[in-house]
């Protein structure tokens, strides 16, 4: 079992955490979900396509996580804040977060928030290298509609980001119909 767990971690952990981080906007939350996903994979090993299985489980966990109590979410947010603070003061901080980069990241997050949940998931799954079959299986849609879903998501993302960057925030808000960056908002849509 340990060899299998090791292989699963080596193969999928990075991509799963990246996917979840992009989706949730919270690295700690993403890692929490990813680790719980692997726990479930170890308890009940996936029988067919393990990558699809892992991403589907992660998606379900995100949905379930959103239903948990505010107290638990507050705890995770506290951990995230502590971690951010620690990392910002630690000696091995990674890439420097300049104000410009932070601004771009915020715009990217806002643009991603602007698209529908299913479109967002398809976009992020594709970014992790999943093929149309896998995306269709995870999202429960027809393979023939994945291209359309992706084209819609990409267009909305790019247009909203461009609108935010050029200062047309009104247009962006009109497109999104909402603002903010909370994990719950991702899931609720």
């Amino acid at each position: 079992m340990t060899a299998e767990a090791d292989r699963l971690f080596r193969t999928y952990h990075a991509t799963l955490v990246r996917y979840l981080t992009r989706r949730l906007g919270d690295r700690d939350w993403a890692e929490e979900v990813a680790q719980e996903t692997f726990v479930r994979a170890l308890r009940q090993p996936p029988t067919s396509n393990e990558r699809s299985w892992l991403f589907a489980v992660a998606n379900n966990l995100v949905r379930d996580e959103a239903r948990k109590s505010i107290r638990q979410r507050s705890h995770l947010q506290l951990l995230a804040a502590e971690e951010r603070e620690r990392e910002s003061s630690g000696p091995d901080t990674g890439e420097e977060m300049t104000p410009e980069r932070a601004h771009e990241m915020a715009m990217a997050r806002r643009a991603l928030d602007s698209i529908a949940e299913r479109d967002r998931q398809a976009l992020l799954l594709k970014a992790e290298g999943l093929d149309y079959d896998e995306i269709a299986g995870i999202l429960g849609i027809e393979k023939s509609s994945v291209g359309t879903t992706l084209s819609r998501a990409r267009r909305r993302l790019a247009e909203t980001f461009d609108a935010l960057r050029t200062g047309k925030s009104g247009l962006a808000d009109a497109n999104t119909g909402r603002t903010g960056n909370t994990g719950d908002a991702h899931v609720a849509s």
């Binding site: 981080t21 690295r27 990392e87 990217a108 997050r109 643009a111 991603l112 976009l123 980001f161």
Partner: peptide, 8 residues
């Protein structure tokens, strides 16, 4: 744009 989300 998606790549910009990778804080870590």
């Amino acid at each position: 744009i998606v790549g910009l989300l990778d804080h870590v």
